[in-house]
Design a protein around this nucleic acid. Structure first.
Lengths: 246, 246
DNA sequence: CGTCTATTTGAGCCCCGTCAAAGGCGGTGG
DNA sequence: CCACCGCCTTTGACGGGGCTCAAATAGACG
Protein backbone atom coordinates (compact mmCIF):
# COMPACT_ATOMS: atom_id res chain seq x y z
CA UNK A 1 0.00 0.00 0.00
CA UNK A 2 2.15 2.80 1.27
CA UNK A 3 5.71 1.53 0.85
CA UNK A 4 7.48 0.24 -2.21
CA UNK A 5 7.38 -3.50 -2.75
CA UNK A 6 10.66 -5.18 -1.97
CA UNK A 7 11.08 -8.39 -3.89
CA UNK A 8 12.28 -11.59 -2.28
CA UNK A 9 15.01 -11.69 -4.93
CA UNK A 10 16.30 -8.38 -3.68
CA UNK A 11 17.21 -10.08 -0.45
CA UNK A 12 20.01 -11.77 -2.40
CA UNK A 13 20.73 -9.21 -5.06
CA UNK A 14 21.05 -5.49 -5.23
CA UNK A 15 19.34 -4.69 -8.50
CA UNK A 16 20.39 -2.00 -10.93
CA UNK A 17 17.80 0.61 -11.81
CA UNK A 18 16.86 -0.99 -15.11
CA UNK A 19 16.45 -4.34 -13.40
CA UNK A 20 14.11 -2.85 -10.83
CA UNK A 21 12.25 -1.17 -13.65
CA UNK A 22 11.80 -4.48 -15.47
CA UNK A 23 10.23 -5.93 -12.35
CA UNK A 24 8.01 -2.92 -11.85
CA UNK A 25 6.65 -3.45 -15.33
CA UNK A 26 5.98 -7.11 -14.57
CA UNK A 27 4.21 -6.28 -11.36
CA UNK A 28 1.75 -4.04 -13.16
CA UNK A 29 0.63 -6.69 -15.66
CA UNK A 30 -2.69 -8.36 -15.08
CA UNK A 31 -3.17 -7.51 -11.42
CA UNK A 32 -5.78 -9.70 -9.73
CA UNK A 33 -7.41 -9.56 -6.33
CA UNK A 34 -8.57 -12.51 -4.26
CA UNK A 35 -10.85 -12.20 -1.26
CA UNK A 36 -10.06 -13.52 2.20
CA UNK A 37 -10.06 -17.35 2.33
CA UNK A 38 -10.71 -17.81 -1.38
CA UNK A 39 -8.42 -19.84 -3.60
CA UNK A 40 -6.13 -18.27 -6.16
CA UNK A 41 -5.76 -21.61 -7.96
CA UNK A 42 -6.86 -25.12 -7.08
CA UNK A 43 -5.39 -28.60 -7.30
CA UNK A 44 -6.23 -30.10 -10.68
CA UNK A 45 -6.45 -26.79 -12.52
CA UNK A 46 -4.15 -25.87 -15.34
CA UNK A 47 -1.75 -23.11 -14.28
CA UNK A 48 -1.55 -20.28 -16.79
CA UNK A 49 0.36 -17.62 -14.93
CA UNK A 50 3.29 -17.06 -12.67
CA UNK A 51 2.04 -15.21 -9.61
CA UNK A 52 3.94 -12.38 -8.02
CA UNK A 53 2.44 -11.48 -4.65
CA UNK A 54 1.94 -7.75 -4.21
CA UNK A 55 -0.19 -7.47 -1.07
CA UNK A 56 -1.56 -9.71 1.65
CA UNK A 57 -0.73 -13.24 2.79
CA UNK A 58 -1.42 -16.50 0.98
CA UNK A 59 -0.50 -20.14 1.43
CA UNK A 60 0.26 -23.18 -0.62
CA UNK A 61 -1.64 -26.22 0.68
CA UNK A 62 -2.71 -29.76 -0.06
CA UNK A 63 -5.84 -31.43 1.26
CA UNK A 64 -6.85 -35.05 1.71
CA UNK A 65 -10.29 -36.19 0.52
CA UNK A 66 -11.58 -36.31 4.11
CA UNK A 67 -10.71 -32.68 4.74
CA UNK A 68 -7.38 -32.97 6.51
CA UNK A 69 -5.28 -30.11 5.27
CA UNK A 70 -1.57 -29.32 5.22
CA UNK A 71 -0.15 -25.89 4.60
CA UNK A 72 3.08 -26.21 2.64
CA UNK A 73 4.32 -22.64 2.48
CA UNK A 74 3.27 -19.09 3.19
CA UNK A 75 3.55 -16.29 0.65
CA UNK A 76 4.05 -12.66 1.57
CA UNK A 77 4.40 -9.57 -0.63
CA UNK A 78 7.50 -9.83 -2.79
CA UNK A 79 7.31 -13.62 -3.16
CA UNK A 80 6.88 -15.46 -6.43
CA UNK A 81 4.76 -18.58 -6.25
CA UNK A 82 6.67 -20.80 -8.68
CA UNK A 83 8.71 -19.80 -11.65
CA UNK A 84 8.19 -23.03 -13.58
CA UNK A 85 4.69 -23.84 -12.43
CA UNK A 86 3.34 -23.67 -15.98
CA UNK A 87 5.54 -26.51 -17.24
CA UNK A 88 3.15 -29.00 -15.68
CA UNK A 89 -0.40 -29.25 -16.96
CA UNK A 90 -2.23 -29.81 -13.68
CA UNK A 91 -1.64 -28.28 -10.27
CA UNK A 92 -0.86 -30.89 -7.62
CA UNK A 93 -1.72 -28.45 -4.84
CA UNK A 94 -3.72 -25.29 -4.24
CA UNK A 95 -2.89 -21.72 -3.36
CA UNK A 96 -5.28 -19.87 -1.11
CA UNK A 97 -5.57 -16.34 0.15
CA UNK A 98 -5.28 -15.94 3.91
CA UNK A 99 -6.01 -12.24 3.88
CA UNK A 100 -7.30 -10.31 0.91
CA UNK A 101 -4.45 -10.40 -1.61
CA UNK A 102 -3.30 -8.63 -4.74
CA UNK A 103 -1.14 -10.52 -7.21
CA UNK A 104 0.36 -9.89 -10.62
CA UNK A 105 -0.57 -12.83 -12.84
CA UNK A 106 2.28 -12.89 -15.31
CA UNK A 107 2.49 -14.76 -18.60
CA UNK A 108 5.34 -17.28 -18.40
CA UNK A 109 6.65 -16.03 -21.75
CA UNK A 110 6.85 -12.49 -20.42
CA UNK A 111 8.84 -13.71 -17.45
CA UNK A 112 11.15 -15.66 -19.73
CA UNK A 113 11.84 -12.52 -21.72
CA UNK A 114 12.85 -10.61 -18.64
CA UNK A 115 15.04 -13.50 -17.54
CA UNK A 116 16.70 -13.71 -20.95
CA UNK A 117 17.35 -9.98 -20.99
CA UNK A 118 18.66 -9.73 -17.43
CA UNK A 119 21.06 -12.50 -16.41
CA UNK A 120 21.37 -11.20 -12.87
CA UNK A 121 17.62 -11.35 -12.46
CA UNK A 122 17.77 -14.91 -13.78
CA UNK A 123 20.30 -15.86 -11.15
CA UNK A 124 18.41 -14.14 -8.36
CA UNK A 125 15.21 -15.93 -9.32
CA UNK A 126 16.97 -19.26 -9.55
CA UNK A 127 18.29 -18.75 -6.04
CA UNK A 128 14.85 -17.82 -4.81
CA UNK A 129 13.55 -21.09 -6.26
CA UNK A 130 16.31 -23.10 -4.62
CA UNK A 131 15.61 -21.52 -1.26
CA UNK A 132 11.92 -22.30 -1.60
CA UNK A 133 12.82 -25.94 -2.18
CA UNK A 134 15.19 -25.91 0.78
CA UNK A 135 12.34 -24.51 2.88
CA UNK A 136 10.11 -27.36 1.85
CA UNK A 137 12.78 -29.77 3.04
CA UNK A 138 13.08 -27.93 6.33
CA UNK A 139 9.32 -28.13 6.81
CA UNK A 140 9.56 -31.88 6.27
CA UNK A 141 12.18 -32.05 9.00
CA UNK A 142 10.04 -29.82 11.17
CA UNK A 143 7.00 -32.07 10.91
CA UNK A 144 8.91 -35.30 11.16
CA UNK A 145 11.27 -34.62 14.02
CA UNK A 146 10.50 -31.54 16.06
CA UNK A 147 8.14 -31.45 19.03
CA UNK A 148 5.10 -29.20 18.96
CA UNK A 149 6.94 -26.55 20.95
CA UNK A 150 10.02 -26.61 18.72
CA UNK A 151 7.89 -26.80 15.60
CA UNK A 152 5.91 -23.65 16.30
CA UNK A 153 9.02 -21.82 17.48
CA UNK A 154 10.72 -22.81 14.25
CA UNK A 155 7.87 -21.65 12.07
CA UNK A 156 7.74 -18.29 13.82
CA UNK A 157 11.50 -17.83 13.43
CA UNK A 158 11.28 -18.58 9.74
CA UNK A 159 8.39 -16.23 9.15
CA UNK A 160 10.11 -13.43 11.03
CA UNK A 161 13.39 -13.84 9.15
CA UNK A 162 11.64 -13.98 5.80
CA UNK A 163 9.66 -10.86 6.53
CA UNK A 164 12.75 -9.13 7.77
CA UNK A 165 14.54 -9.98 4.52
CA UNK A 166 11.94 -8.03 2.54
CA UNK A 167 11.83 -5.11 4.92
CA UNK A 168 8.65 -6.10 6.71
CA UNK A 169 9.96 -6.51 10.22
CA UNK A 170 11.17 -3.85 12.58
CA UNK A 171 11.89 -3.56 16.23
CA UNK A 172 11.78 -7.32 16.92
CA UNK A 173 8.29 -7.45 15.54
CA UNK A 174 6.29 -8.23 12.44
CA UNK A 175 2.77 -8.62 11.17
CA UNK A 176 1.25 -12.10 11.55
CA UNK A 177 -2.28 -12.41 10.17
CA UNK A 178 -2.35 -16.19 10.59
CA UNK A 179 -4.99 -17.75 12.81
CA UNK A 180 -4.17 -20.61 15.13
CA UNK A 181 -5.86 -22.89 12.63
CA UNK A 182 -3.43 -21.70 9.93
CA UNK A 183 -0.53 -22.42 12.25
CA UNK A 184 -2.02 -25.82 13.08
CA UNK A 185 -2.34 -26.72 9.41
CA UNK A 186 1.27 -25.70 8.86
CA UNK A 187 2.66 -27.66 11.79
CA UNK A 188 0.55 -30.80 11.64
CA UNK A 189 -1.02 -30.07 15.02
CA UNK A 190 -4.55 -29.28 16.12
CA UNK A 191 -5.50 -25.69 16.76
CA UNK A 192 -6.21 -26.59 20.37
CA UNK A 193 -2.67 -27.79 20.84
CA UNK A 194 -1.27 -24.81 18.97
CA UNK A 195 -3.13 -22.59 21.40
CA UNK A 196 -1.66 -24.32 24.45
CA UNK A 197 1.81 -24.35 22.93
CA UNK A 198 1.66 -20.64 22.09
CA UNK A 199 0.79 -20.00 25.71
CA UNK A 200 3.86 -21.94 26.75
CA UNK A 201 6.04 -19.94 24.37
CA UNK A 202 4.56 -16.74 25.75
CA UNK A 203 5.00 -17.69 29.37
CA UNK A 204 8.60 -18.67 28.60
CA UNK A 205 9.08 -15.12 27.33
CA UNK A 206 10.02 -16.26 23.84
CA UNK A 207 7.23 -14.52 21.97
CA UNK A 208 4.50 -11.98 22.29
CA UNK A 209 1.55 -12.42 20.00
CA UNK A 210 -1.62 -10.42 19.85
CA UNK A 211 -3.87 -8.65 17.39
CA UNK A 212 -2.07 -10.07 14.38
CA UNK A 213 1.35 -8.92 15.48
CA UNK A 214 4.27 -11.10 16.52
CA UNK A 215 7.08 -9.82 18.71
CA UNK A 216 10.23 -11.78 19.39
CA UNK A 217 12.11 -10.10 22.25
CA UNK A 218 15.19 -12.29 21.87
CA UNK A 219 15.49 -13.95 18.48
CA UNK A 220 18.52 -15.99 19.48
CA UNK A 221 16.62 -17.51 22.37
CA UNK A 222 13.70 -18.45 20.15
CA UNK A 223 16.06 -19.87 17.56
CA UNK A 224 17.74 -22.07 20.08
CA UNK A 225 14.40 -23.29 21.43
CA UNK A 226 13.48 -24.15 17.85
CA UNK A 227 16.79 -25.81 17.02
CA UNK A 228 16.82 -23.27 14.24
CA UNK A 229 19.72 -23.35 11.80
CA UNK A 230 19.29 -20.69 9.16
CA UNK A 231 21.67 -22.25 6.65
CA UNK A 232 18.70 -23.44 4.57
CA UNK A 233 17.68 -19.86 3.87
CA UNK A 234 21.06 -19.25 2.24
CA UNK A 235 21.11 -15.62 3.29
CA UNK A 236 24.88 -15.36 3.22
CA UNK A 237 26.21 -15.77 -0.29
CA UNK A 238 24.91 -12.70 -2.04
CA UNK A 239 25.01 -12.21 -5.78
CA UNK A 240 27.57 -9.60 -6.80
CA UNK A 241 26.21 -6.06 -7.27
CA UNK A 242 25.79 -4.69 -10.81
CA UNK A 243 28.90 -3.37 -12.59
CA UNK A 244 27.66 0.19 -12.30
CA UNK A 245 26.90 0.64 -8.60
CA UNK A 246 23.54 2.22 -7.89
CA UNK B 1 24.25 -54.42 -12.77
CA UNK B 2 23.25 -56.62 -15.67
CA UNK B 3 20.57 -54.48 -17.33
CA UNK B 4 20.89 -51.10 -18.99
CA UNK B 5 20.29 -48.09 -16.75
CA UNK B 6 16.94 -46.47 -17.40
CA UNK B 7 16.96 -42.83 -16.47
CA UNK B 8 14.20 -41.22 -14.47
CA UNK B 9 13.83 -38.69 -17.30
CA UNK B 10 13.02 -41.53 -19.67
CA UNK B 11 9.87 -42.11 -17.71
CA UNK B 12 8.60 -38.88 -19.26
CA UNK B 13 10.44 -38.82 -22.54
CA UNK B 14 11.34 -41.32 -25.18
CA UNK B 15 14.85 -40.28 -26.09
CA UNK B 16 16.35 -40.41 -29.54
CA UNK B 17 19.51 -42.43 -29.99
CA UNK B 18 21.82 -39.44 -29.86
CA UNK B 19 20.13 -38.21 -26.70
CA UNK B 20 20.63 -41.56 -25.01
CA UNK B 21 24.22 -41.51 -26.20
CA UNK B 22 24.79 -38.08 -24.63
CA UNK B 23 23.57 -39.46 -21.32
CA UNK B 24 25.70 -42.56 -21.60
CA UNK B 25 28.72 -40.34 -22.00
CA UNK B 26 27.74 -38.35 -18.92
CA UNK B 27 27.23 -41.48 -16.88
CA UNK B 28 30.78 -42.62 -17.58
CA UNK B 29 32.42 -39.43 -16.32
CA UNK B 30 34.01 -39.51 -12.91
CA UNK B 31 32.30 -42.56 -11.48
CA UNK B 32 32.54 -42.77 -7.70
CA UNK B 33 31.64 -45.50 -5.24
CA UNK B 34 30.37 -45.01 -1.71
CA UNK B 35 30.23 -47.78 0.87
CA UNK B 36 27.12 -48.81 2.78
CA UNK B 37 25.99 -46.14 5.28
CA UNK B 38 28.67 -43.62 4.31
CA UNK B 39 27.83 -40.11 3.17
CA UNK B 40 28.20 -38.98 -0.42
CA UNK B 41 28.13 -35.34 0.67
CA UNK B 42 27.42 -33.65 3.99
CA UNK B 43 25.52 -30.63 5.18
CA UNK B 44 27.84 -27.61 5.14
CA UNK B 45 30.08 -28.88 2.36
CA UNK B 46 30.42 -27.11 -0.96
CA UNK B 47 28.78 -29.12 -3.74
CA UNK B 48 30.99 -29.49 -6.80
CA UNK B 49 29.15 -32.09 -8.86
CA UNK B 50 25.75 -33.12 -10.02
CA UNK B 51 25.25 -36.75 -9.04
CA UNK B 52 23.66 -39.28 -11.33
CA UNK B 53 22.88 -42.49 -9.44
CA UNK B 54 23.99 -45.59 -11.30
CA UNK B 55 23.66 -48.37 -8.74
CA UNK B 56 22.34 -48.87 -5.22
CA UNK B 57 20.05 -46.82 -2.99
CA UNK B 58 20.77 -43.50 -1.28
CA UNK B 59 18.82 -40.92 0.66
CA UNK B 60 18.72 -37.22 1.20
CA UNK B 61 18.46 -36.37 4.90
CA UNK B 62 18.73 -33.65 7.50
CA UNK B 63 19.71 -34.16 11.11
CA UNK B 64 19.18 -32.11 14.26
CA UNK B 65 22.11 -31.48 16.61
CA UNK B 66 20.78 -34.04 19.11
CA UNK B 67 20.75 -36.81 16.53
CA UNK B 68 17.13 -36.82 15.41
CA UNK B 69 17.17 -37.48 11.72
CA UNK B 70 14.71 -37.00 8.88
CA UNK B 71 15.01 -38.70 5.52
CA UNK B 72 13.78 -36.34 2.83
CA UNK B 73 13.96 -38.47 -0.30
CA UNK B 74 15.27 -41.76 -1.58
CA UNK B 75 17.42 -42.09 -4.68
CA UNK B 76 17.48 -45.15 -6.89
CA UNK B 77 19.46 -45.87 -10.07
CA UNK B 78 18.48 -43.47 -12.84
CA UNK B 79 17.81 -40.56 -10.47
CA UNK B 80 19.66 -37.27 -10.50
CA UNK B 81 20.21 -35.70 -7.09
CA UNK B 82 19.76 -32.04 -7.97
CA UNK B 83 20.39 -30.28 -11.20
CA UNK B 84 21.11 -26.89 -9.67
CA UNK B 85 22.71 -28.00 -6.46
CA UNK B 86 25.97 -26.23 -7.32
CA UNK B 87 24.37 -22.79 -7.47
CA UNK B 88 24.44 -22.64 -3.69
CA UNK B 89 27.76 -22.62 -1.88
CA UNK B 90 26.90 -24.81 1.12
CA UNK B 91 24.75 -27.92 1.29
CA UNK B 92 21.79 -27.50 3.65
CA UNK B 93 21.36 -31.28 3.89
CA UNK B 94 23.31 -34.49 3.42
CA UNK B 95 23.13 -37.38 1.00
CA UNK B 96 23.99 -40.80 2.35
CA UNK B 97 24.38 -44.25 0.83
CA UNK B 98 21.91 -46.84 2.10
CA UNK B 99 23.48 -49.67 0.18
CA UNK B 100 26.83 -49.52 -1.57
CA UNK B 101 26.28 -47.07 -4.44
CA UNK B 102 27.90 -46.04 -7.67
CA UNK B 103 27.35 -42.51 -8.94
CA UNK B 104 28.57 -40.41 -11.83
CA UNK B 105 29.84 -37.13 -10.38
CA UNK B 106 29.28 -34.73 -13.24
CA UNK B 107 30.69 -31.22 -13.66
CA UNK B 108 27.78 -28.75 -13.74
CA UNK B 109 29.28 -27.19 -16.87
CA UNK B 110 29.26 -30.52 -18.65
CA UNK B 111 25.63 -30.97 -17.77
CA UNK B 112 24.83 -27.49 -19.02
CA UNK B 113 26.45 -28.28 -22.36
CA UNK B 114 24.30 -31.36 -22.81
CA UNK B 115 21.22 -29.36 -21.85
CA UNK B 116 22.09 -26.58 -24.28
CA UNK B 117 22.67 -29.07 -27.08
CA UNK B 118 19.54 -31.16 -26.48
CA UNK B 119 16.40 -29.16 -25.76
CA UNK B 120 14.32 -32.28 -25.19
CA UNK B 121 16.75 -33.44 -22.53
CA UNK B 122 16.49 -30.00 -20.97
CA UNK B 123 12.73 -30.28 -20.77
CA UNK B 124 12.83 -33.82 -19.43
CA UNK B 125 15.27 -32.79 -16.70
CA UNK B 126 13.21 -29.76 -15.79
CA UNK B 127 10.19 -32.00 -15.36
CA UNK B 128 12.19 -34.40 -13.26
CA UNK B 129 13.14 -31.48 -11.00
CA UNK B 130 9.55 -30.31 -10.71
CA UNK B 131 8.38 -33.78 -9.77
CA UNK B 132 11.07 -34.02 -7.10
CA UNK B 133 9.79 -30.78 -5.63
CA UNK B 134 6.21 -32.04 -5.78
CA UNK B 135 7.34 -35.17 -3.96
CA UNK B 136 8.84 -33.07 -1.21
CA UNK B 137 5.48 -31.35 -0.82
CA UNK B 138 3.71 -34.69 -0.69
CA UNK B 139 6.09 -35.88 2.02
CA UNK B 140 5.23 -32.77 4.00
CA UNK B 141 1.56 -33.67 3.69
CA UNK B 142 2.39 -37.26 4.59
CA UNK B 143 4.15 -36.29 7.81
CA UNK B 144 1.70 -33.60 8.77
CA UNK B 145 -1.63 -35.28 8.16
CA UNK B 146 -1.50 -38.99 7.57
CA UNK B 147 -1.62 -41.60 10.34
CA UNK B 148 1.28 -44.01 10.77
CA UNK B 149 -0.58 -46.69 8.84
CA UNK B 150 -1.44 -44.39 5.93
CA UNK B 151 2.00 -42.85 6.00
CA UNK B 152 3.87 -46.11 5.54
CA UNK B 153 1.38 -47.33 2.96
CA UNK B 154 1.88 -44.07 1.08
CA UNK B 155 5.64 -44.31 1.15
CA UNK B 156 5.58 -47.88 -0.13
CA UNK B 157 3.20 -46.93 -2.95
CA UNK B 158 5.45 -44.10 -3.99
CA UNK B 159 8.59 -46.21 -3.95
CA UNK B 160 6.93 -48.95 -5.95
CA UNK B 161 5.60 -46.56 -8.60
CA UNK B 162 8.94 -44.81 -8.92
CA UNK B 163 10.79 -48.07 -9.33
CA UNK B 164 8.23 -49.25 -11.82
CA UNK B 165 8.71 -46.08 -13.85
CA UNK B 166 12.38 -46.93 -14.36
CA UNK B 167 11.78 -50.59 -15.08
CA UNK B 168 12.71 -51.89 -11.65
CA UNK B 169 9.44 -53.46 -10.62
CA UNK B 170 7.81 -56.54 -12.02
CA UNK B 171 5.08 -58.90 -11.03
CA UNK B 172 3.70 -56.65 -8.25
CA UNK B 173 7.08 -56.64 -6.60
CA UNK B 174 10.26 -54.64 -6.25
CA UNK B 175 13.52 -54.52 -4.36
CA UNK B 176 13.42 -52.67 -1.01
CA UNK B 177 16.77 -52.52 0.77
CA UNK B 178 15.52 -50.09 3.41
CA UNK B 179 15.62 -51.08 7.06
CA UNK B 180 12.78 -50.30 9.42
CA UNK B 181 14.97 -47.53 10.79
CA UNK B 182 15.21 -46.00 7.32
CA UNK B 183 11.44 -46.17 7.00
CA UNK B 184 11.07 -44.67 10.46
CA UNK B 185 13.37 -41.76 9.58
CA UNK B 186 11.35 -41.16 6.43
CA UNK B 187 7.96 -41.23 8.12
CA UNK B 188 8.73 -39.44 11.37
CA UNK B 189 7.96 -42.55 13.41
CA UNK B 190 10.07 -44.78 15.63
CA UNK B 191 11.35 -48.04 14.23
CA UNK B 192 9.34 -49.89 16.86
CA UNK B 193 6.15 -48.36 15.63
CA UNK B 194 7.12 -48.93 12.00
CA UNK B 195 7.55 -52.59 12.85
CA UNK B 196 4.10 -52.88 14.38
CA UNK B 197 2.51 -50.94 11.55
CA UNK B 198 4.17 -53.11 8.90
CA UNK B 199 2.72 -56.13 10.67
CA UNK B 200 -0.70 -54.55 10.44
CA UNK B 201 -0.25 -53.86 6.73
CA UNK B 202 0.86 -57.46 6.25
CA UNK B 203 -2.00 -58.95 8.20
CA UNK B 204 -4.42 -56.78 6.22
CA UNK B 205 -3.00 -58.39 3.08
CA UNK B 206 -1.81 -55.08 1.65
CA UNK B 207 1.89 -55.91 1.46
CA UNK B 208 4.39 -58.70 1.70
CA UNK B 209 7.84 -57.74 2.81
CA UNK B 210 10.81 -59.94 3.48
CA UNK B 211 14.46 -60.25 2.63
CA UNK B 212 14.65 -56.85 1.03
CA UNK B 213 11.78 -57.44 -1.34
CA UNK B 214 8.40 -55.72 -1.31
CA UNK B 215 5.34 -57.28 -2.90
CA UNK B 216 2.06 -55.43 -3.33
CA UNK B 217 -0.63 -57.94 -4.28
CA UNK B 218 -3.25 -55.28 -5.01
CA UNK B 219 -1.79 -51.84 -5.65
CA UNK B 220 -5.20 -50.18 -5.82
CA UNK B 221 -6.04 -51.45 -2.35
CA UNK B 222 -2.77 -50.15 -0.92
CA UNK B 223 -3.27 -46.83 -2.67
CA UNK B 224 -6.68 -46.39 -1.19
CA UNK B 225 -5.42 -47.30 2.30
CA UNK B 226 -2.74 -44.65 1.81
CA UNK B 227 -5.10 -42.00 0.43
CA UNK B 228 -2.68 -42.06 -2.45
CA UNK B 229 -3.29 -39.65 -5.32
CA UNK B 230 -0.60 -39.99 -7.93
CA UNK B 231 -1.18 -36.62 -9.55
CA UNK B 232 1.95 -35.26 -7.87
CA UNK B 233 4.12 -37.67 -9.83
CA UNK B 234 2.84 -36.13 -13.08
CA UNK B 235 3.15 -39.40 -14.94
CA UNK B 236 0.53 -38.49 -17.51
CA UNK B 237 1.65 -35.61 -19.67
CA UNK B 238 4.54 -37.08 -21.57
CA UNK B 239 6.94 -35.03 -23.63
CA UNK B 240 6.45 -35.55 -27.39
CA UNK B 241 8.72 -38.16 -28.97
CA UNK B 242 11.59 -37.02 -31.21
CA UNK B 243 10.81 -35.98 -34.77
CA UNK B 244 12.52 -39.04 -36.14
CA UNK B 245 10.88 -41.97 -34.31
CA UNK B 246 13.28 -44.33 -32.60
C1' DC C 1 29.56 -70.86 14.20
C1' DG C 2 30.23 -66.55 16.12
C1' DT C 3 29.30 -61.72 15.55
C1' DC C 4 26.77 -57.91 14.14
C1' DT C 5 22.77 -55.91 12.59
C1' DA C 6 17.83 -55.95 11.96
C1' DT C 7 13.36 -57.43 13.50
C1' DT C 8 10.09 -58.49 16.90
C1' DT C 9 7.73 -58.32 21.37
C1' DG C 10 6.11 -56.43 25.94
C1' DA C 11 4.88 -53.05 29.46
C1' DG C 12 4.06 -48.51 30.71
C1' DC C 13 3.27 -43.77 29.85
C1' DC C 14 2.99 -39.19 27.74
C1' DC C 15 2.22 -35.96 24.16
C1' DC C 16 -1.11 -34.51 21.58
C1' DG C 17 -5.91 -35.30 19.67
C1' DT C 18 -11.03 -35.21 20.42
C1' DC C 19 -15.11 -33.29 21.91
C1' DA C 20 -17.52 -29.67 23.92
C1' DA C 21 -18.38 -25.27 25.63
C1' DA C 22 -17.25 -20.65 27.18
C1' DG C 23 -15.17 -16.26 26.43
C1' DG C 24 -13.14 -12.43 23.68
C1' DC C 25 -12.87 -9.33 19.89
C1' DG C 26 -13.66 -6.92 15.70
C1' DG C 27 -16.94 -5.56 12.41
C1' DT C 28 -21.46 -4.05 11.02
C1' DG C 29 -25.83 -2.22 11.16
C1' DG C 30 -29.49 -0.09 13.46
C1' DC D 1 -23.02 4.33 20.36
C1' DC D 2 -24.78 0.14 21.44
C1' DA D 3 -26.21 -4.55 20.23
C1' DC D 4 -25.57 -8.31 17.74
C1' DC D 5 -23.04 -11.71 15.09
C1' DG D 6 -19.39 -14.47 13.42
C1' DC D 7 -14.92 -15.83 13.92
C1' DC D 8 -11.11 -16.72 16.75
C1' DT D 9 -9.11 -17.93 21.09
C1' DT D 10 -9.17 -20.22 25.35
C1' DT D 11 -10.26 -23.83 28.73
C1' DG D 12 -11.48 -28.53 30.61
C1' DA D 13 -11.90 -33.49 30.72
C1' DC D 14 -10.74 -37.52 28.71
C1' DG D 15 -8.81 -40.90 25.47
C1' DG D 16 -5.53 -42.95 22.33
C1' DG D 17 -1.79 -43.27 18.97
C1' DG D 18 2.68 -43.52 19.05
C1' DC D 19 7.06 -43.22 22.08
C1' DT D 20 10.40 -45.12 25.54
C1' DC D 21 13.00 -48.53 27.52
C1' DA D 22 14.43 -53.08 27.52
C1' DA D 23 15.19 -57.58 26.05
C1' DA D 24 14.61 -61.60 23.09
C1' DT D 25 14.77 -63.55 18.50
C1' DA D 26 16.00 -63.92 13.79
C1' DG D 27 18.97 -63.20 9.74
C1' DA D 28 23.11 -61.99 7.21
C1' DC D 29 27.83 -62.56 6.51
C1' DG D 30 32.27 -64.13 6.89
Amino acid sequence: MGGVLKLRSEAFTRFAEEETAAFERLSRTNVQEVEVRRDLIREGENPRWVYLFLEGWACRYKALPDGRRQNLAFFVPGDICDLNVCVLTAMDHSIGAITRIRVAAIEPELFQEVIAAHPRIARALQREELVKIAMQREWTLNLGQRTAYERIAHLLCEIFLRLDAVGRAADHSCELPLTQVDLADATGLTSVHVNRTLQELRSDGLIELKSRRLTIPDLEKLKSAALFNDNYLHLNDEIAPPAKGD
